[in-house]
């Protein structure tokens, strides 16, 4: 057999060749140091890749995942905060409007008072000579 191709050696270590081909390559490797070395290099690369598999902090990871799938107390706090803000805004608006209504009411009251006084003055100085005494 000729030296197996790089592709064949690669498929050989992955056991992705028909049985007869695997046997052929095995027999060849036994007698060919060059191919044995090529094969060893490939196996060494695979071994290095396996060594690059890392151990992560899975405890922290799991805790983070679980926290994300649970209803968060933080968001409940936010909800309360939102509720308080809305309440405050409503009372401010209510307070301000009450203030405006009250000042308008007072203005109207003063205006009416002035009107009454002027009417009283007209009547008390009228041609009829009738004197009306205001109760004020």
């Amino acid at each position: 057999m000729n030296h197996p191709s790089f592709e064949d050696l690669s498929s050989f270590i992955d056991k992705e060749l028909p049985d007869w081909k695997i046997r052929e390559i095995e027999e060849h490797i036994d007698i060919c140091p060059t191919c044995r070395e090529r094969l060893e290099d490939l196996l060494l690369i695979d071994q290095g890749i396996r060594a690059s598999y890392q151990e992560f902090d899975t405890q922290t990871f799991t805790a983070e995942v679980l926290e994300r799938i649970r209803p968060k107390p933080v968001s409940r706090y936010n909800f309360r905060l939102k509720l308080a803000t809305i309440g405050l805004a409503i009372s401010l608006i209510f307070g301000a409007s009450l203030g405006i209504v009250r000042s308008r009411y007072r203005e109207n009251l003063n205006r009416e008072k002035q009107l009454l006084i002027s009417q009283h003055n007209i009547i008390s100085s009228g041609d009829m000579g009738v004197i009306l005494i205001s109760d004020r």
Binding site: Q54, E55, F56, T58, F61, T62, V65, L66, I69, R70
Partner: peptide, 16 residues
């Protein structure tokens, strides 16, 4: 949730 936690524990390293 505990069962899910175990699933995460079991496979998270491979997935990461």
């Amino acid at each position: 949730e505990k069962a899910f936690e175990e699933i995460v524990n079991r496979y998270s390293n491979r997935v990461i």
